[in-house]
Design a protein around this nucleic acid. Structure first.
Length: 896
DNA sequence: TCACATCGGGG
DNA sequence: GTGTACGATGTGA
């Protein structure tokens, strides 16, 4: 029989038995039992004393002598170790603790590896692998799918995945007090919505409702919560999904529903076995859940961690709208009880609301192929699919453990708390040096193309080129004298790859070569195939990139600072050499470089020519660098604006099969931030566009001036000035004064019947006035109704100018250009200067001006045209001198 | 700028 | 369970 390995665990009878959950080629769920595998670990120390200590141990089955290779430090000879074979998985812990206190024990290895993983590693099996088993059918009530006893098992190659069944669910419950979260110990679940793929009993969705009402065909009603929960469990068993998904289920719905099972004295046995209940436990801040034989996929957690897609907010509504073009049904949290206790219409809307949530959660996973990459990560790392959603280090360790097994290398234990503290302290002393970031030639570069080149997979290729690996690191002085090696810029020595290729370089060689092939295949393919290839190459890239960081991670089993530092030092040397080569050979200036990229300024105005030069540089530099280091031509910027290290924007042109593809690219310059109003975002984008696409600093400046005038004239729609912030806790528990909280307090007084609640998001604008800023936050509606003026000063100097100024400063908005003489100043200085000069002349402190409601108009002496601020030329367009109209009356002349 | 605190998602 | 362990963003010094 053949099946794809979905999940694994073990049970204990007389002896431990491994259980493998999988799906056959015909997509049937099965469970296979493997009985002949027992726990063990390794000890390095005085054999006689170890034997003496353990001779009467109940836990230990036997002790065997073996020869093993250490993971850290190159050696030719394996070392003597003792393999301690134990009765049960727990015996390993007990024996380990007993041994670890003894002086005659030098080291303990692999005594902290989960039993299921011990099995998978020893049999060379990865999560989501296809396996071929010789087996007999057995009969057991402990699992709900057909069960077999394995006689023989081996991994097979198969490029298809079995078809998985998905169920997404969502629960609704109403708290006693809307300022608090619902309490799973007290507040019942009132709705459970589900969505299925494929259909369940010809239904795409189903909603369980704890209220006897007349409802549609996709709704089942219950008088009691207990009955509803029972039904939920039954449906899961009947539909029998492989994947259980939902939005933030791991941290909310699952723990909540499990507590409700407990309160109703029901066993939560909706996994694929009857002997292990579904459980969730608090680990640190978040919950961790397990459903035997099924996989929990929480799209919220996946999306939040994904470095490629970023959302403004991570609530289901925003994310679904962004990904699927469809959001939630609009029911506010605080209105839920009104719907639930309302008329039939209201309840029906509430039911659709719940139904929609389950639907959206499922569609996100399916339509966006959310788990594809993780399936590939499982196959690659060896982790079970469920465990690939967590951190990177466990992926690296599991993958290396598989390699170590093949090479007879022992994996060190995880660091103890003391060891972690030591590492942290050590790190504080001699800091881990990072990558090189060249100081950029700041400003706007628009005379010729900026050619961008970069090193693909820099760190993985450095590791390969210089054979950097814990097992190739030379620690022994004697070996050092007798062997050929490479020395890193920090002085660490690695055996020459021809003599011995380290584990990490070797797995990276495989991964990078495979990735190249897959990328080629991806180009030729389409549809679902292409998606899978893409998932594969993404998984390979993710894996390849995680080795460098791993060796410098304080909780790593293979924490080797010499390695982390060698990698970055080679990186710095590489970038230095690259810059030198480009500048000496090609006579172009490298105006910026960061870690693995170089930005080359040229006088070339033709894109194709720039590309040609880029390729020449690429070829030359690559030929003159060792090993696998390859500088590739990536794109050119037609215009390039760099503010500081890591902050730039440019008009990029990337060569594609169908010609040049252009776009405005930004790094480190945020145009979108939650605490900025729309106006700022819009202005930023326009300014950047004007500067980059038109190279027109002047019109960008004018545009900003124009916006400023509009703000002062109250011509900007309030919607664009609205800042949105959420109420996160009860109003009284805020210590400081925050605008949206002050507004919320006002609203409580204004409409006591419908006060803002925890979890609400409030949009506000800042209105003009003398009081503290946060006291002047107001609702848009209210401002319109009362015809209040906005605080234009605030919007100009607190919202608009800070980000705009950072950009305009870099393009050297100078007095020379703007005022006709003097040194370089930035736009804010100009504004301030104008204000200060005004103040000075009219002899009023700026504070006083504020009290009086700000300076007013600037009026032309000749034509009486008014300006909202001092024209930068100091003169009116008609040439007349500017006077200040102050507090309604024209005041003194302004000094030019 | 760095250390410390908070908040998020869900309902 | 041969355990595990948030991470980004905002505030304060």
């Amino acid at each position: 029989m053949r099946f794809q390995l979905l999940d694994a665990d073990y049970i204990q009878n007389q002896k431990p038995i491994i259980r493998l959950f999988g799906k056959t080629e015909r997509n049937e769920p099965i469970c296979c039992f493997f009985e002949d595998f027992i726990p063990y670990f390794y000890v390095e120390g005085e054999e006689e004393k170890v034997r003496e200590l353990l001779k009467d141990s109940e836990e230990v089955v036997s002790i065997e002598k073996e020869k093993k290779i250490p993971a850290i430090g190159y050696t030719k000879e394996p070392r003597n170790v003792l393999k301690i074979i134990t009765k049960k998985p727990e015996s390993v812990v007990k024996t380990r603790e007993l041994l670890s206190k003894k002086k005659f024990v030098k080291n303990i290895y692999e005594a902290d590896i989960l039993f299921k993983y011990r099995f998978l590693i020893d049999y060379g099996l990865h999560g989501m692998d296809w396996v071929d088993v010789e087996c007999n059918k057995i009969f057991t009530k402990t699992v709900k799918c057909p069960a077999f006893k394995i006689k023989k098992i081996k991994r097979i190659e198969k490029d298809r995945n079995s078809q998985l069944k998905y169920l997404s669910f969502d629960i609704e419950c109403i708290p006693k007090d809307f300022t608090k979260s619902p309490d799973p110990k007290r507040d019942q679940i009132i709705l459970i919505s589900m969505s299925f793929e494929p259909k369940y009993k010809n239904k795409k969705t189903l909603v369980l409702c704890k209220k006897m009402i007349k409802a549609g065909k996709n709704v089942l009603c219950f008088a009691e919560e207990k009955e509803m929960l029972k039904k939920f469990s039954e449906i899961i068993d009947e539909f029998d999904p492989d994947i259980i998904t939902g939005y933030n289920i791991e941290d909310f719905d699952l723990p909540y529903i499990l507590e409700r099972f407990k309160q109703n004295k029901l066993a939560a046995t909706f996994g694929r076995c009857t002997d292990k209940p579904v459980f969730s436990r608090k680990v640190g801040i978040s919950y961790q859940c397990n459903i035997s034989g099924r996989i929990i996929v929480d799209s919220y957690q996946i999306l939040k961690k994904d470095p490629w897609i970023k959302f403004m907010h991570y609530d289901l509504n925003t994310v679904a709208k962004e990904l699927l073009g469809e959001g939630k049904i609009d029911i506010k949290y605080r209105d839920m009880d009104k719907y639930w206790n309302g008329d039939e219409e209201k309840i029906k809307k509430f039911i659709s609301y719940a139904e929609k949530d389950a639907e959206l959660a499922l569609r996100i996973v399916l339509e966006k192929g959310l788990i594809n990459k993780f399936v590939e990560l499982a196959k690659l790392s060896g982790l079970l699919l469920q465990d690939t959603f967590g951190g990177q280090s466990i992926r690296v360790e599991t993958m290396l453990m598989h390699e170590f097994k093949k090479r007879n290398i022992l994996m060190p234990s995880k660091p103890s708390n003391d060891e972690v503290d030591r590492r942290i302290k050590e790190r504080e002393k001699e800091e881990l040096k990072g990558a090189t970031v060249l100081e950029p030639v700041k400003g706007l570069h628009c005379k010729g193309c900026i050619i961008v080149l970069d090193f693909a997979s820099l760190y993985p290729n450095i590791i390969r080129t210089f054979n950097i690996s814990p097992d190739s690191l030379i620690l022994d002085k004697k070996i050092e004298k007798s062997i050929k090696y490479i020395t890193s810029p920090t002085g660490a020595k690695f055996v020459d790859a021809k003599i011995y290729e380290g584990v990490i370089p070797s797995v990276l060689r495989n991964m990078l070569e495979t990735r190249k092939k897959i990328k080629k295949m991806m180009k030729k393919s389409s549809g679902e195939k292409k998606k899978i290839f893409n998932a594969m190459q993404l998984a390979l890239k993710t894996m390849a990139n995680s080795f460098y960081g791993y060796t410098g991670f304080v909780l790593a089993r293979l924490y080797v600072l010499d390695i982390a530092n060698s990698i970055t030092s080679f990186g710095r040397e590489n970038l230095r050499k690259t810059k030198k080569m480009i500048e000496e050979k090609f006579q172009y200036k490298v105006i910026y470089a960061d870690t693995d990229s170089a930005f080359v300024e040229t006088d070339i105005t033709n894109l194709d020519k720039a590309k040609k030069v880029g390729e020449e540089i690429s070829a030359y530099v690559s030929n003159n660098l060792p090993g696998y280091l390859e500088l590739e031509f990536e794109k050119t910027f037609r215009t390039f604006l760099i503010l500081t290290k890591k902050r730039y924007a440019g008009w990029s042109f990337e060569p594609t099969d169908s010609g040049w593809k252009d776009k405005i690219e930004m790094k480190g310059i945020e145009t979108i931030r939650r605490d900025w109003c729309k106006l700022v975002t819009e202005t930023m984008n326009t300014v950047l566009e004007l500067i980059l696409k038109k190279g027109d600093v002047k019109s960008a400046t004018n545009y900003v001036k124009d916006i400023i005038e509009k703000i002062k004239k109250n011509e900007i729609p309030l919607e664009k000035l609205t800042i949105v912030k959420g109420i996160t806790k009860s109003l009284t528990s805020y210590k400081g004064t925050l605008p949206h909280i002050e507004l919320a307090k006002k609203l409580v007084k204004r409409h006591p019947e419908n006060p803002p609640k925890v979890g609400d998001r409030l949009g506000y604008v800042i209105i003009a006035g003398n009081s503290m800023l946060s006291k002047r936050a107001e609702e848009v509606e209210y401002v319109k109704e009362k015809k209040l003026a906005i605080d234009s000063n605030y919007y100009i100097s607190n919202q608009l100018l800070p980000p705009i100024e950072r950009i305009l400063r870099a393009v050297g908005i100078s007095k020379t250009e703007l005022l006709g003489g003097g040194h370089q100043v930035n736009i804010k200085d100009i504004m301030n200067k104008t204000r200060r000069e005004v103040n000075h002349n009219i002899n009023i402190e700026s504070n006083d001006i504020k009290k009086l409601g700000g300076w007013e108009d600037f009026i032309c002496e000749k034509c009486k045209k008014t300006y909202n601020r001092m024209p930068l030329s100091g003169l009116c367009t008609c040439g007349g001198k500017i006077l200040i109209s102050y507090h309604g009356s024209v005041s003194r002349k302004c000094k030019q």
